[in-house]
């Protein structure tokens, strides 16, 4: 029905997709003030090119996600400047306590991860969370596959140095989260 451009069907699909695509956009956007613009452009593109969707190649969600991700990356490139991000060197690695995540909401996890340098987080998002290969990432970000690998390594290092979460860290970043 969406392919026939029926407004009711389009609205239903929009309502179904919006929460997921909103979170996806927030994950990828460096500056969330562009969130509405990116979502608007993405939905228009989704509805206009819905006839090109081929269910044999991917699910609709994956297809729509790819459109949103590309729009976010494009927005980052057009509007983003490479800001200098402080890279704190911890001399002592701490043990990773994955259980800490259980106490955090998705919003908090996202806020925490967004402290990572944006270039690293882009690769982390694409590779770890959305499952793209380095080759695909290199094309999407217009970087070499080796740089993509390097950024992933650095993002992991960044995480590793921070996920030895102790009370001080959580208090600093997430004062509302109770530390077990």
């Amino acid at each position: 029905m969406c392919r026939e451009k029926k407004p009711e069907a389009q609205r239903i699909l929009y309502d179904l997709l919006l929460p997921y695509l909103e979170m996806l956009s927030r994950r990828y956007l460096r500056d969330e003030s562009f969130l509405k613009d990116v979502l608007q452009e993405s939905f228009i593109r989704i509805f206009k090119s819905i006839n090109q969707f081929d269910e044999r190649k991917a699910s609709f969600k994956t297809w729509a996600s790819k459109i949103v991700i590309n729009n976010c990356l494009k927005c980052n490139t057009q509007n983003g400047k490479v800001n200098t991000v402080e890279f704190v060197i911890n001399l002592h690695d701490r043990m990773i306590d994955a259980k800490v995540l259980d106490d955090m909401t998705n919003e908090e996890i996202l806020a925490f991860l967004k402290n990572m340098p944006s270039e690293y987080f882009e690769v982390f998002n694409l590779y770890i969370i959305d499952g793209f290969s380095h080759k695909e990432i290199s094309k999407m970000l217009n970087i070499s596959p080796s740089l993509s690998r390097q950024r992933l390594t650095r993002s992991r290092a960044w995480l590793k140095k921070r996920i030895g979460l102790d009370k001080r860290f959580i208090d600093h970043f997430f004062p509302d989260v109770k530390n077990n």
Binding site: L18, E22, M23, E32, L35, K36, N106, E107
Partner: peptide, 10 residues
Amino acid sequence: LRDASSEGRV
């Protein structure tokens, strides 16, 4: 995060 939703920002 992969299938997480977010509401209210827009």
